[in-house]
Design a protein around this nucleic acid. Structure first.
Lengths: 233, 233
DNA sequence: TAAGGATGTATTGTCGACAATCTTTAGTGT
DNA sequence: ACACTAAAGATTGTCGACAATACATCCTTA
């Protein structure tokens, strides 16, 4: 609890939003658990005012649900919602890849090739494979999204959707696609982007995400995710 | 303005969110104008607590911007953001049309054909053309979105994006596409959906939205929308 | 006269307390 | 014993006031 104690922010509401988001993603606040305003306020040493504003934000992010006069609960995870999210990602990141192919700069393309080379080297050396397959994957996708230069698209994906995605990631760590296969697909996408083939880039990105979704679906049908770690005895 | 005066809601925050959204969309709160918390609170006869929670929601909806210790302002409209939104719609509603083609029921298809027949009849009679071209258009799109059965997609489009779109609509009323052309395109999309041709439905929906975006762009490059009322000298 | 700083005012951020609502528990009657 | 009712407890919704920050005005000084 002391590794991220220092959070600098202008307002308590922003602090709380960040900290609560982190706690939900990390599982400190278990899925489906009730959120008690007095308890949380006491825990963070703040009043209920800023806390409630943070809860409104978390609700907008889709991390909690709130019902009037009853209270807030952390959302539950289920297969349908996760597949819905992947379908949305397919549409939005597919478009991002298309736009990136039209707008990306040569320097950025070179940087991305370097990034993928790094991933390849890590995989070959079997160093920190976990890091590469998780954060490296996210990194590539985020770069493509940024390269789209579409502010609304960037905001929707990086601020709204990815909070939920990181949350699901915690409970689907064992059913991830083969990182080498993912890297091959990333390279194919980047080739299409570099060649300014928007249609192909979109097609490949959609296929890439769709494939990941299918793997997740298969894995989760056997190993239901609702039995996941609750993080609190 | 007195048809929706009665707003029943469990909490003041929800009331305020609805009313403020309406006022921003209708232009009562001009684009770019500063939002004074004490003034608004007095005007609605509430305290600043619920009002601030509503403002947090509006910020999440993208209707206002807030900066710490400075305050909130209604967003400004500009061509780039509007085009970004249409690009996003192209991706998301295209996917919605594809999903609708896979999942829609026969009854719903028949209802949609009836809906388009109604629009056709209205146009032929030149009755209330304004209504058909605006709300009728929105209605068809909303139906397709609902038919996708993707909860995340539905929420993102109907709750987040469409508030902003309705807002822009107010300032682009003169540069709308030909309603008869739009209706023809709607029919083509519905035919593809009815025939379960997901690829075609997506293609046609994307072309439909892209065409509207191009028309808007052309119209707005001449008749800049930033000449709108700023509400504050 | 212009630039910089200090003071004062207004606005936002935060807090503690009261009111309204829901949930739980005890009680009563059939 | 079970079901329904009512009171008690706790939680959420709302309010008014205080503290901190930013903005505007005025004064000082080069």
């Amino acid at each position: 609890m002391d590794k991220v104690t220092q959070i600098k922010s202008a307002t308590l509401t922003d602090d709380l939003t960040q900290r609560l988001t982190a706690e939900i993603v990390e599982g400190v606040l278990p899925l489906g658990s009730k959120i008690s305003e007095p308890e949380l306020a006491k825990r963070y040493g703040v009043s209920r005012g800023p806390l409630r504003e943070a809860l409104v934000k978390l609700e907008a992010l889709g991390l909690i649900t709130r019902t009037a006069n009853v209270g807030a609960r952390v959302i539950e995870l289920n297969i349908e919602d996760l597949l819905d999210i992947y379908t949305l990602r397919e549409a939005m990141e597919g478009m991002a890849a298309r736009l990136a192919a039209e707008l990306i700069s040569e320097e950025e393309v070179n940087e991305l090739y370097k990034l993928l080379d790094d991933h390849q080297a890590h995989l070959d050396a079997n160093q920190d494979e976990h890091y590469v397959s998780q954060y490296g994957n996210e990194d590539f996708h985020l770069r493509i999204i940024q390269a789209s230069q579409n502010k609304k698209l960037i905001r929707a994906l990086t601020q709204d959707l990815y909070a939920t995605i990181r949350m699901y990631r915690r409970y689907t760590a064992d059913s991830r696609p083969d990182p080498r296969q993912a890297l091959r697909e990333h390279k194919a996408i980047l080739d299409a982007v570099a060649n300014r083939e928007g249609d192909l880039a979109e097609l490949l990105m959609r296929r890439h995400i769709s494939r990941a979704a299918n793997l997740l679906k298969k894995a989760m049908l056997q190993n239901s995710i609702s039995q996941g770690n609750t993080g609190q005895p």
